[in-house]
Amino acid sequence: MADELSKVFAALADPTRRDIVARLAVSDATVSELAAPYDVSIQAVSKHLKVLEDAGLVSRTREAQKRPVHLETEVFDLMTKWIERYRKRAEERYQRLDALLAEMNDGPAASEPGDDIETPQEGKAS
């Protein structure tokens, strides 16, 4: 699973590929349709699609003379599960920290702000 995720995150590290994925989230498209808004060759877009395909993010099918590119949404489920696991762990740590801070602020040993500042009279011997 980690290897798959590495490929997915590496593929999505490029802004052009992220844009292609965003466009494919709306509908399938051909390589020519995907290349249209970019100032690059169809071959360059094909290379981007190959990286996305190797990561399992897209697939290509054949419909008559067309070869539409399709977004494989299951890969996003894998990414979401991975991210959610670490989000939950971080949330648990924050909740423990909140509880500790509340205990420190509300506990019997809690002091008022400024109690730790020594006044000039306190520092002198009587």
Rank of each mutant, 00 (worst) to 15 (best):
residue 68 P to L: 12
residue 69 V to L: 06
residue 18 R to D: 05
residue 49 L to F: 09
residue 11 A to L: 06
residue 97 L to F: 12
residue 79 M to I: 09
residue 83 I to H: 04
residue 81 K to M: 03
residue 49 L to H: 01
residue 69 V to I: 08
residue 94 Y to F: 15
residue 54 D to N: 11
residue 58 V to P: 01
residue 119 T to E: 09
residue 27 S to G: 06
residue 108 P to R: 10
residue 108 P to Y: 08
residue 89 R to A: 07
residue 10 A to C: 08
residue 123 G to I: 08
residue 108 P to E: 04
residue 105 N to I: 09
residue 73 T to H: 15
residue 116 D to W: 13
residue 71 L to F: 00
residue 50 K to M: 05
residue 46 S to Y: 11
residue 50 K to C: 00
residue 4 E to K: 06
residue 96 R to D: 14
residue 52 L to Q: 03
residue 88 K to R: 12
residue 112 E to P: 01
residue 80 T to I: 10
residue 103 E to H: 14
residue 89 R to S: 08
residue 51 V to Y: 05
residue 2 A to Q: 09
residue 90 A to N: 10
residue 64 A to L: 12
residue 68 P to C: 13
residue 19 D to A: 13
residue 13 A to M: 05
residue 19 D to V: 06
residue 119 T to W: 06
residue 14 D to N: 12
residue 19 D to P: 09
residue 47 K to P: 09
residue 101 L to A: 14
residue 99 A to G: 04
residue 118 E to N: 03
residue 8 V to D: 01
residue 79 M to S: 04
residue 109 A to P: 10
residue 87 R to D: 14
residue 10 A to Q: 08
residue 46 S to W: 14
residue 52 L to I: 04
residue 67 R to Q: 09
residue 53 E to R: 15
residue 68 P to V: 11
residue 116 D to Q: 14
residue 114 G to T: 03
residue 93 R to Q: 15
residue 59 S to T: 13
residue 113 P to G: 07
residue 106 D to V: 09
residue 4 E to Y: 05
residue 58 V to L: 04
residue 21 V to S: 00
residue 16 T to G: 04
residue 14 D to K: 07
residue 113 P to H: 09
residue 107 G to E: 11
residue 115 D to R: 15
residue 28 D to M: 10
residue 58 V to F: 05
residue 37 P to M: 01
residue 82 W to H: 15
residue 78 L to D: 03
residue 116 D to K: 13
residue 14 D to A: 05
residue 111 S to F: 12
residue 65 Q to G: 12
residue 70 H to Q: 10
residue 80 T to R: 15
residue 75 V to H: 01
residue 63 E to K: 13
residue 63 E to V: 14
residue 26 V to M: 03
residue 18 R to K: 11
residue 117 I to V: 11
residue 17 R to I: 02
residue 116 D to G: 08
residue 10 A to L: 12
residue 21 V to H: 00
residue 115 D to Y: 14
residue 31 V to L: 15
residue 39 D to Q: 11
residue 84 E to N: 00
residue 74 E to A: 15
residue 30 T to E: 11
residue 79 M to Q: 06
residue 124 K to I: 08
residue 58 V to S: 00
residue 38 Y to E: 07
residue 6 S to C: 08
residue 45 V to T: 14
residue 51 V to H: 05
residue 56 G to C: 02
residue 29 A to T: 02
residue 124 K to A: 08
residue 78 L to E: 04
residue 70 H to P: 01
residue 19 D to M: 12
